[in-house]
């Protein structure tokens, strides 16, 4: 690297400027990384507990559902569930966190929450229960989706930021420092050379007279 840079004052100013920017960028990115890791920890804990809860409850609900299915017969269940009266509206909002766009969901169920979407004549209580369980779980499932996506995106961004911090810390900053030192030394050397030359010339002129 040293061989390629020209030891001039212009280059020195440029490098000094670059060094300042690299140091500033390094500090900012380091702060960003630290804050993102902090946020990430809260989200990942939420993610984990949500997933545990959902895995447990959903398995339970689906078990009830399969019992209901075997009691009522597959056709009847399909018939009961095939034409839903309810529609679930999910609205996405975008939140910017540490320059990462993360989605957040808002759940709006149309109709009443505790209403079952079919008539009671041919269906069993097990089915009611499992459907109600799932309805109750829906907001949690959306929260899980949100938390998981947030964690994915954050983890990716943290990795990227860490790479950048490392590259600045271990490559760009030391390299610039080295180059600045090289140029300063070179310029000082030039200065000394000029001084000695002048002294020499003075001596020569004095001896000529």
């Amino acid at each position: 690297m040293c061989a390629q840079i020209k030891p001039t004052r212009m280059e020195l100013t440029r490098l000094k400027h670059q060094y300042q920017i690299a140091k500033r960028g390094h500090k900012l990115l380091k702060d960003k990384r630290d804050e993102m890791v902090r946020q990430f920890m809260t989200y990942i804990k939420k993610n984990k507990s949500l997933r545990e809860e959902i895995e447990e409850k959903l398995t339970e609900a689906l078990k009830h559902f399969s019992i209901a299915e075997s009691k009522m017969g597959e056709d009847l269940v399909t018939e009961a569930l095939l034409c839903p009266e309810k529609t679930s509206d999910v609205v996405i909002n975008w939140v910017n966190m540490m320059n990462v766009n993360i989605p957040s969901f808002e759940f709006k169920a149309s109709g009443q929450a505790q209403e079952l979407p079919y008539g009671f004549a041919f269906t069993s209580g097990e089915l009611d229960r499992s459907v109600l369980d799932v309805i109750e779980l829906l907001p949690l499932m959306l929260e899980l989706a949100e938390a998981e996506k947030t964690c994915n995106l954050l983890a990716d961004e943290i990795e990227k930021t860490r790479r950048r911090v490392n590259a600045l810390e271990h490559v760009v900053i030391p390299e610039t420092k080295k180059n600045i030192k090289y140029i300063t030394m070179h310029l000082e050397e030039n200065e000394r050379a000029a001084t000695t030359r002048l002294m020499k010339v003075k001596d020569m002129m004095l001896s000529e007279n």
Binding site: L62, F65, S66, V90, S110
Partner: peptide
């Protein structure tokens, strides 16, 4: 910026039938 989200469920038929009841695809 907000928009409506479409939610889908993929899986074996017996497990996911129930999500029909709540309006997911």
């Amino acid at each position: 910026m907000s928009q409506k989200a479409k939610v889908a469920v993929i899986g074996d038929e017996n497990s996911i039938m129930i999500f029909n009841a709540v309006g997911f695809y």
